[in-house]
């Protein structure tokens, strides 16, 4: 489906027009506030993230979109002085309640980082790292997981003959797909992506986007991106953040064609940001 962005000559391809609002809610965020020491980084965020759909977080640098992303798998826990108020429910479990096992949560909510960060190990050992952590030792099972994960990440054909070579010898784009495969290997339900293609060339970016489009069939994906076209191409829902607040949230086709707020329109059409 091709859509025309209002008030600008640009057109964008939006990947589908099926109705996703009937999908079940996977993540429910209520009145989420986040502090770095005395600085409030997130202001009362309310959001419903749908299952098996791609939700894009957009907004100018420092608007809190990456911070918000990291509250969903509690990666902010590792930052000294970070505090949180409000609730994040994943499958109706508040992930900030004291009895939650953070390691299990992070296994369920995988994360792909802005800069590809493979371990200085072989391709095989990179993928097998997660499963091994979680107790898989049978070699045949590991081989199966590695193959499946690499296939899902569309990397298998490029590396199947050299699984024992170092992961750092791969190209940047291949490394990022390896990192996605590494996340898939622990069988998550949600995948968080923090500008996964911002350090890659256009060709590798296209491959990552295709991959995201494939993965949304089986996973709930939340992606932070600076690239408006990318948000329009890959996402079903779009959330616009500004100064730590959620300004607008809705179906991507609505947000891009008929935004409710003036600020969103200004940002999307490039008049601001």
């Amino acid at each position: 489906m091709e859509i025309k962005i209002l008030n600008s000559g640009k057109t964008l391809r939006v990947n589908q027009d099926q109705d996703l609002s009937s999908n079940t809610t996977k993540i429910l965020v209520r009145d989420l506030e986040m502090f770095y020491g005395p600085v409030r980084a997130l202001h009362g965020i309310d959001m419903e993230i749908k299952e098996k759909a791609v939700t894009a977080l957009i907004g100018p640098s420092g608007c809190g979109k990456s911070t918000f992303l990291r509250t969903l798998n509690r990666m902010n826990d590792t930052i000294p002085g970070a505090r949180i108020h409000g609730t994040v429910l994943i499958d109706d479990v508040n992930i900030y309640s004291p009895e939650v096992n953070v390691a299990v949560l992070r296994r369920m909510v995988g994360m792909v980082f802005q800069k590809q960060n493979p371990f200085p190990k072989s391709i095989f050992d990179n993928i097998a790292y997660g499963p091994r952590l979680h107790g898989v030792i049978d070699k045949a099972v590991l081989e199966h997981i590695v193959e499946e994960s690499l296939k899902k990440a569309a990397l298998w054909n490029e590396v199947k003959d050299r699984l024992q070579t170092g992961a750092l010898e791969l190209s940047g784009g291949q490394q990022q797909r390896l990192c996605i495969a590494r996340v898939l290997a622990v069988n998550p339900e949600i995948i968080l992506m923090d500008e996964p293609a911002s350090a890659l060339d256009p060709l590798s970016t296209a491959k990552i986007e295709e991959l995201i489009y494939e993965l949304r069939k089986n996973y709930t994906i939340v992606i932070v991106t600076h690239n408006m076209q990318q948000a329009a191409r890959v996402s079903d829902f779009t959330a616009y953040f500004y100064m730590g607040s959620l300004v607008e949230f809705g179906l991507t086709k609505d947000v891009f064609t008929n935004p409710l707020k003036k600020e969103t329109e200004d940002y999307i059409t490039g008049r601001f940001g």
Partner: peptide, 27 residues
Amino acid sequence: VPQSQRAASLALGATKWQTIWNIVLPQ
């Protein structure tokens, strides 16, 4: 050892000690 290496391991569900033992110390 870059922080991104620790982050990668923690994000896969490794505990702090698993991350230190498997990723940080070997490097």
